Amino acid sequence: MKTKLHLLYGGKSAEHQVSLQTALAVTKALDTDKFEVYPLYITETGEWKRGGLLNGPAESVHQLKLEEGGTTIAPLALTNEEETEETQTVVFPLLHGPNGEDGTVQGMLELLNLPYVGNGVLASSAGMDKVIMKNLFDQAGLPQVGYAHFLRSEWEKAADTTYEKVESELGYPCFVKPANLGSSVGISKAKNRKELEAAFREAFDYDRKIIVEQGLEGAREIEIGVLGNDEPECSVIGEIAPKTEFYDYKAKYEDGDTAMIIPAEISEDIYEQVKEMAITAFKAIDGAGLVRADFFLTKEGKLYINEVNTMPGFTPFSMFPLLWQHTDVSYPQLIEKLVGYAQQRHEEKQKIKHTFKKKISPVD
């Protein structure tokens, strides 16, 4: 059976350009003997455009914007009515950030009863909202650094009170982040009150809710890939070694001024602890398909989970695919595995009953 694969990318998000780069890389890795590939582009204003069948890799990001030959569609037009016994439709969301990675698109695909790659509605929304995610990790017993969260409205009413809470509960240095964004957008490190005030303003530009996390001086940043559905597996561990003070957007996407050490030099005991914690985190959010789990490792050997990313960077040079490449899963094989997990999960969902008939006891 040939799979009709819709690559869904772009999106009304600050991570729009990152998504385009991901989609370009995926088109170059897909085997057209196994997949019929259709581009599905969401513009920065939220318009949906569908392109025709790709007979080979896309040549550029410009081509993927479908400015020529693309047809504007309503999202509800994505049905599987044209499916035959020889093909099965699967949607591969390659969206990063809000309006794509946060459960919104996943909910729409659930309503359309279409199989799709990656995490479902709950895991996507919980994984996007760092506050909810950390609350779930707390409940699962996973160790984390101290954190506090604030709404824009409470900050606007009493800014000094929010700063004082950070200083009394977390101290400096600390990291200030939008609660619902990825790719290190809007994140700042604060070492004093002046920097904290600027960091709050920066983060609130991107979300109505922010999170402030306690800084760990000298801690190593390590990451692991998780792949699967009910029985997830883990990759080798990688380490982020930024040459700047922390792994911000510029270091991640613009400078290339960051070393990724794969596999990381860690003990077998630490590796086993990271795997166990990563799978616990995956299950805590009811993950499916994939996540990248990020940790801090202190000089004393103490592990803290930082976050999980439910749609991690996915170019061939991103950490998640590289972790699996070092686990003997190539980039094309990784894509095929993810599509297979999507089909498996969809088939399982079709077994769920959606009607209920009450049993009537016979009258004596």
Rank of each mutant, 00 (worst) to 15 (best):
G51L: 02
V91H: 07
Q63M: 07
D129N: 06
G107H: 00
L64S: 08
Q88E: 13
S124A: 05
I132T: 08
K130C: 05
S60P: 08
L78S: 04
T71W: 13
A58H: 10
L76K: 09
V61Y: 14
K130R: 03
G97F: 02
Q106E: 04
E83W: 04
E68V: 03
H96Y: 06
K65I: 00
L112N: 08
L54T: 09
N113I: 01
R50A: 12
E59T: 07
Q106F: 02
L76G: 01
E82K: 03
Q88F: 07
M108W: 14
L114F: 10
G100T: 14
V117C: 13
G52V: 06
Q63H: 08
M133Q: 14
T72Q: 04
V117Y: 10
E59N: 06
S60M: 09
A123D: 06
L94S: 04
A74V: 02
V121E: 11
V91R: 09
V121T: 10
V131A: 08
G107P: 01
G97W: 00
N119P: 00
M128L: 14
V91D: 05
G118F: 02
Q139W: 12
L94V: 01
K65H: 05
I73H: 14
S125Q: 08
P93C: 15
G127K: 15
L64F: 15
N55W: 06
G52E: 10
Q139H: 11
L109E: 14
Q139M: 12
T104A: 12
L54G: 03
G70A: 11
E67G: 13
K49H: 12
L95S: 12
E85F: 09
G107L: 02
P98T: 11
I132P: 02
I73S: 10
E83M: 01
E81Y: 01
K130V: 04
N119V: 01
G127D: 10
K65Y: 01
M133E: 13
G52H: 09
G120W: 07
Q106R: 04
M108P: 04
Y116F: 12
S124E: 08
E81N: 04
L64E: 09
G103V: 00
L54W: 10
F137T: 00
K134T: 01
S60Q: 06
D129I: 00
L76Y: 12
S60D: 04
D138P: 00
G69C: 11
N55Q: 15
G97V: 03
P75I: 12
L78V: 03
